[in-house]
Amino acid sequence: MVELTVDGQAVGAEKGKMLLPICLDAGFDIPHLCYNESVRPYGACRLCLVEVRKNGRGRMTTSCTYPVIEGIEVLTQTEKVLRARRLVIELILAMCPGDEEIQEMAREMGVEDVRFEKEEKDCILCGLCGRVCEEVVGANAIHFANKGSNREMIPPFAGEATDCIACGACVTVCPVNVIGMREESDERTIIRWKRTLKMKKCKVCGNYFAPWFQLEKFRQQAGLPTDFFDTCYSCRE
């Protein structure tokens, strides 16, 4: 355990934990977009900036990637921090002016309009979908491509994500809801990754319950009998 102070308040934390979850747990509001505790911290959105003072020297850093150490002094609401956050959200808003979540966040931080030409992107490039696909799902169906302002999250060669099992983890984790999933009778489509998979029909009740490809993958991974997924979860005895 280490002791630190956040905005003057003493906070205890487990050594090696990142600063952001500790501050959030302690009730400090720090905006963030690219953080999810199930994946490794990444630090792409730069919204969770705080000032950390150590041995009398202060500097600004993203709290999601900062491992706590004994005796640091964390400031979450200084003028410098707020200014940087406002500018970051302004930049993100200028990139994705149509995302309601971003609009809401910007409004809360006091950013009403942007001073730049608005782009028409929707993805904020936080990378959560790709990281979840790699670290939680293990499918590695999507990844960042290109660099600089051409950066984008895409399936291989911007085609169909052929390794995608349509589990939808990316759809749920997306902070701005732009991946999208559609289920129509016997098909499930992950819209953004252009991936459509046929659904398996339960032998007993006749309901479609999961994509073929996904079940087949699970079956092979776990070495289950071929008829294991013939019935849905509810019909399995």
Binding site: P21, E37, S38, V132, V136, C167, A169, R188, A210, Q214
Partner: peptide, 16 residues
């Protein structure tokens, strides 16, 4: 949403 609970549930917070 309901059929996504293979991996998506793991993304819920672990904080109780």
């Amino acid at each position: 949403m309901e059929n996504l609970n293979v991996y998506a549930v793991r993304l819920l917070t672990q904080k109780e």
